[in-house]
Design a protein around this nucleic acid. Structure first.
Length: 650
DNA sequence: ACTAGTAAGG
């Protein structure tokens, strides 16, 4: 609701202090004529008045509608009990209760009664904080500061306000409110502290969250949970688990909120072992199995590769929400069990839960990862048939699915059919075009995006730069890379460096690639060194290649790809002894050759590289699919090879 | 009366 509208209608208030008083004196005159009230003034004593005051509280508890509420209000007005800030606060409190919440009327009451107490303000603020526009809570708070009279904000006010700032990521306002906390000397209140930990975590400022935690006078379960969840939210799963160990050593028992954070951290780490440990803890200690906790467990088990365990938890659930269904379905889909996912989806139709947009987004995402175009198309039809709203997020998922499953023209047509497009929408079409080697189209969509005033982000540039990389557009790549910081104020991340090193390395500009790596503000990862190594191998720079390979082996000695590539590099440079040595090293270390995540085929002398998304299917089958696909497009004879490609056209 | 919490996308 809009607060300013309410103040405009203030004249129409059913309740203004003057009116209250007029009604009061009117009733007072009449009641005074009643003999048994003669000598006793009508006041806030519950035993006096037409209706005993404490009856209002029980009436309020039974109240079910606004008209009913107004009747009680009228009674309170007649008996003058409404003039008592405590009595009126009960009325206001009722208006904010979730079941019968009417915030418009709540504000009318708040502004209409005499001297609303801090409780009245607090419950109104709380009510707005849970409304569709939580920011209105801040407006009420400002009004409280201005018109609150003797009612000052207290330790119940601030946790709610801080949470609003946290959830809306209003960092400046949040700091301002913390300033107020200090001014009023409420900084030692544990709820305020806990809310601050949560707030800093939401801003991504974990150092400050940690500071708030360390400085907290009391560390209760909520403090620990806020910190652990903060690290988890920032993707620092190890750190979350580390903090839990500390919590454990201080003798504090985890509850289901703690477990949600920890189990979800395991999902992020892909650690089935750790996930099972926490599941065991939950069972052994009788941690309350709430629906969100069960959902988190289903997600963890299916992401860590144990869909059967996930399904067992799903089956045991007494109550399932849309999240449970969606998590289970996408769990199957992600595991490549598309038929089971589809079956569960059909079963879901018979339950009371209906798939929503987010369900479809999940299913599409699974299709993108698996390259399952047919299922993706089926989902597209389903969306159209059931009139699900094709919002930006869903449209973007469709674009992504079509692009990653190889139908870029359909991706483009979905893009053009969308009413509103945001940054991810442009990012996915640009990334899709990059994947299909259409650099000029990718660049023209990028220009369109800038013209439309939509800000690109780091991921947009990954698409843009990789488009340049695939097309060998060296200068354009350099320009966009430097524009990231200078024009768009985006800091290049590891991934951007690895694309640039890939671009420069493939062009044989190995010194430039090495120089770029020296300017990196972070430690180069395996992708960056791998890109350099690949360039070195391609351009027969054995010295630099050895250096890169050494680094790569330090990072992951079990990566068979490095030995294979070393073997090839030496072989192509006619250094047969060294090639043999590389192979021997691999055998000695017991490194097993893994199925590569890519396949390549040679068409009329040109190598095409495929990123293989479905790792559960045999290599031969995937290559066969690729061949069919290419054959349809090109009608040419193809030859297959399963090794590192020389060129990257697709 | 206030504070912590589940599914996704580039």
């Amino acid at each position: 609701m809009n607060i300013s509208n309410v103040s405009k209608s203030k004249l129409l208030l059913p309740l203004i202090p003057k009116l209250n008083r007029a009604l009061y004196s009117h009733c007072h005159r009449r009641t005074r004529s009643l003999p048994h009230h003669k000598d006793k003034p009508i006041n806030h004593n519950p035993t006096h008045g037409l209706v005993p005051h404490n009856r209002f509280l029980s009436l309020l508890q039974k109240c079910e509608s606004l008209p009913h509420l107004k009747q009680i209000q009228a009674q309170m007005t007649i008996t003058a009990s409404i003039l008592n800030p405590f009595e009126s606060s009960q009325l206001i409190n009722f208006c904010t209760l979730s079941k019968s919440r009417n915030l418009d009327y709540c504000v009318k009451l708040l502004r209409g009664v005499d001297n609303p107490n801090a409780f009245s303000w607090n419950v109104t603020i709380k009510g707005f904080s849970e409304s569709p526009n939580p920011k209105d809570a801040i407006l009420i708070y400002k009004e409280m500061l201005r018109d609150g009279g003797e009612s000052r904000p207290d330790h119940f006010t601030y946790p709610v306000l801080i949470k609003v700032c946290a959830d809306l990521e209003l960092s400046r306002l949040g700091l301002m409110i913390l300033g107020h906390v200090f001014k009023l000397g409420l900084e030692l209140v544990s709820h305020v502290h806990n809310a601050s930990i949560h707030m800093f975590a939401c801003f991504g400022e974990m150092e400050n969250a940690r500071k708030a935690f360390d400085e907290s006078p009391v560390r209760d379960l909520v403090s620990w949970n806020s910190l652990i969840n903060g690290y988890k939210k920032m993707g620092q799963a190890e750190k979350a688990i580390e903090v839990y160990k500390m919590m454990e050593s201080e003798g504090i028992d985890a509850d289901y909120v703690t477990m949600i954070a920890l189990v979800s951290s395991c999902a992020m780490l892909g650690s089935l072992k750790l996930g099972r440990e926490f599941y065991g803890y939950i069972i052994d200690n009788g941690v309350r199995m709430t629906v969100p906790l069960a959902n988190t467990l289903i997600d963890m088990f299916s992401k860590c590769g144990d869909v059967h365990e996930a399904r067992m938890i799903f089956d045991r659930m007494e109550k399932r929400t849309i999240v449970s269904w969606t998590t289970m379905i996408s769990g199957y889909a992600r595991s490549g069990l598309l038929d089971v996912a589809r079956k569960l989806f059909d079963e879901m139709q018979t339950s009371s839960t209906k798939p929503d947009e987010i369900t479809m987004i999940h299913c599409l995402s699974a299709c993108s990862q698996l390259g399952a175009l047919d299922v993706g198309v089926w989902i597209h039809r389903y969306i159209e048939k059931h009139n699900l709203s094709l919002n930006v997020a869903l449209g973007t998922s469709l674009i992504d699915m079509y692009a990653k499953c190889g139908n870029i023209s359909e991706a483009r047509s979905v893009f053009h059919g969308m009413k509103t497009r945001n940054s991810p929408t442009y990012t996915s079409i640009i990334g899709g075009l990059a994947l299909h080697g259409d650099a000029s189209a990718a660049i023209s969509y990028f220009n369109e995006m800038i013209d439309a005033g939509i800000a690109p982000d780091e991921i947009t540039f990954i698409g843009l730069l990789s488009a340049c990389c695939h097309a060998g557009m060296i200068q354009a790549g350099r320009d966009y890379f430097s524009q990231m910081k200078s024009r768009f104020n985006l800091n290049p991340q590891l991934k951007h460096y690895s694309v640039m090193v890939d671009l420069l390395g493939k062009a044989g500009l190995l010194e430039e690639a090495e120089k770029l790596m020296e300017t990196m503000p972070m430690e180069a990862d395996a992708a960056v060194w791998g890109a350099l190594f690949f360039g070195c191998k391609m351009h027969r720079n054995v010295v630099m290649g050895e250096k890169a390979a050494k680094k790569l082996l330090e990072l992951d000695p079990g990566d068979s790809g490095i030995y294979v590539l070393l073997d090839k590099m030496y072989g192509e440079a006619n250094m047969w002894e060294d090639a043999k040595k590389a192979r021997r090293m691999m055998n000695e270390r017991g490194v097993e050759k893994k199925t590569p995540g890519y396949s390549s085929i040679k068409v009329n002398g040109v190598y095409f590289e495929f990123i293989v998304r479905d790792k559960s299917r045999p290599e031969s089958e995937k290559i066969y699919d690729c061949l069919n696909c290419l054959g349809r497009h090109m009608g040419s004879s193809v030859s297959v090879r399963s090794e590192v490609p020389e060129m990257r056209l697709l």
